[in-house]
Simulated scan of single mutants.
Amino acid sequence: MSTAPRPVLLAVYDTLADWEYGLATAHINSGAHQIDPGRFTVVTVGLTDAPIRTMGGMRVVPDITIDEVDDTTTAALILPGAEAFSAGYGAPWADLAERLLAVGIPVAAICGATSALARHGLLDHRPHTSNAVEYLGAQPGYRGEEFYVDELAVTDGDLITASGIAPAHFARAVLERLGLYRPETLAAWFDLYENHDPAAYPRLMAESA
């Protein structure tokens, strides 16, 4: 009897930054190169079931609402950035992130989404990154400067944070945390998508054979 794939939640909201999550979600859903394809599926989640409009003009209808998130089946939560975060948006998503982290469910936040976590105090006592320490320092209530790491992506247990200019680094951290690829496969994947190494493609195919 096959097991239903566990949902990897992609938070969606108006002004969503299209480029920040695509590498992660596409490779989670595709099954290609994975150790055990079919374990996960991407599910979009909104504050309501109303359609949202991304920064790139794409219309997305959420699969579920935030009130329907099931802690017992959720595999991870991905929080992309959005222009809306500049206006202080994000408290409900930070609440959800805190809830999921408390029960050992990974949360991955990139760009503006890290500001919501910062305002909520979730970055005050654990290694993290963002667009810049000054960016987070401007968020009311942020006290995590000593834990800021000047890297493009940082994984601290179940929390992944990343700069908005590093979608491949972000995706690599998400794919690694979910255990989708063998280490050698993930290395080849990253060399292809981030380092643009043409020799990485046959390596990736060989790892997947």
Rank of each mutant, 00 (worst) to 15 (best):
M1Q: 15
R6P: 11
A11N: 13
D14Q: 03
L16M: 06
L16F: 02
D18G: 03
Y21M: 11
G22R: 08
A24H: 07
H27G: 13
I28T: 02
N29L: 15
A32M: 15
H33E: 08
Q34L: 00
D36S: 09
P37G: 11
P37S: 10
G38K: 01
R39M: 02
F40Q: 07
V43Y: 00
V45I: 01
L47G: 08
T48Q: 13
A50Y: 06
P51M: 03
R53T: 15
R53G: 10
T54Q: 01
G56N: 03
R59E: 11
R59T: 12
V60Q: 12
V60F: 12
V61K: 11
V61W: 10
I64M: 05
E68W: 03
V69C: 08
D71S: 15
T72K: 03
T73C: 08
T73A: 09
T74A: 12
A75M: 04
L77A: 04
L77K: 07
A82F: 07
G88I: 11
Y89Q: 03
G90N: 04
A91F: 04
P92F: 01
P92I: 01
R99G: 07
V103P: 04
V103K: 03
V103S: 11
G104N: 03
I105S: 05
V107H: 10
C111S: 12
G112Y: 02
G112F: 00
T114Y: 00
T114I: 07
R126I: 13
P127V: 02
H128M: 00
A132M: 06
E134K: 12
L136K: 04
G137M: 09
Q139A: 07
Y142L: 04
E146F: 12
E146G: 14
Y148C: 01
D150T: 05
L152F: 05
A153T: 14
D156G: 08
G157H: 05
L159M: 03
G164E: 00
G164W: 01
G164N: 02
A168C: 13
H169I: 01
R172I: 09
R172Y: 05
A173V: 09
A173H: 01
V174A: 06
V174Q: 03
V174H: 02
Y181V: 10
E184W: 02
T185D: 09
A188P: 08
L192D: 10
Y193M: 07
E194V: 15
L204Y: 03
